[in-house]
């Protein structure tokens, strides 16, 4: 796998969620993602960035453009040093929310991505990685 480009963006305010979406959109356009794939990726980014801000009490997004076997892709890593997720399986269920919300962000982001991974340690923080290929 080849790394073509990478950038780290802080996620500490609501404006940063908008900025994360916009950068993700631009990169997806640059890699010739189809409109539907752009939209799916940007939406997943928006959900995860908001989780980082609200539950993770802020963190950052690392965005990477990668290439594997002539296929280009985007990978986004969301990392925070918040309280962590005690039960990941539970958090991935549609409708599970500790924030009185819809509980769609995590499971939705998973459905919208080709690759999805969560690593979380209670008390240490959370890292969610998604990837989408052209």
């Amino acid at each position: 796998m080849m790394l073509l480009k990478s950038e780290s963006l802080p996620i500490v305010s609501e404006q940063d969620i908008v900025r994360a979406r916009q950068v993700a959109r631009q990169w997806a356009i640059d890699l010739n993602f189809k409109l539907i794939d752009q939209t799916k990726f940007v939406t997943a980014v928006s959900e995860l960035a908001r989780n980082t801000l609200i539950y993770g009490r802020g963190g950052f997004m690392l965005l990477e453009a990668v290439e594997k076997d002539l296929r280009k892709g985007l990978r986004a890593v969301f990392e925070d040093r918040g309280p962590g997720i005690p039960d990941i399986e539970e958090a991935l269920k549609d409708g599970f929310s500790t924030g009185n919300s819809l509980g769609l962000g995590l499971p939705g982001a998973k459905r919208l991505s080709n690759e999805f991974e969560i690593i979380s340690q209670p008390g240490e923080g959370t890292r969610v990685t998604i990837a989408r290929w052209t």
């Binding site: 939209t39 769609l104 939705g108």
Partner: peptide
């Protein structure tokens, strides 16, 4: 837009 609608459905909304 179609792409938005498809994505929303996939998201679960």
């Amino acid at each position: 837009q179609p792409a938005v609608a498809i994505t929303l459905v996939e998201l679960g909304m």
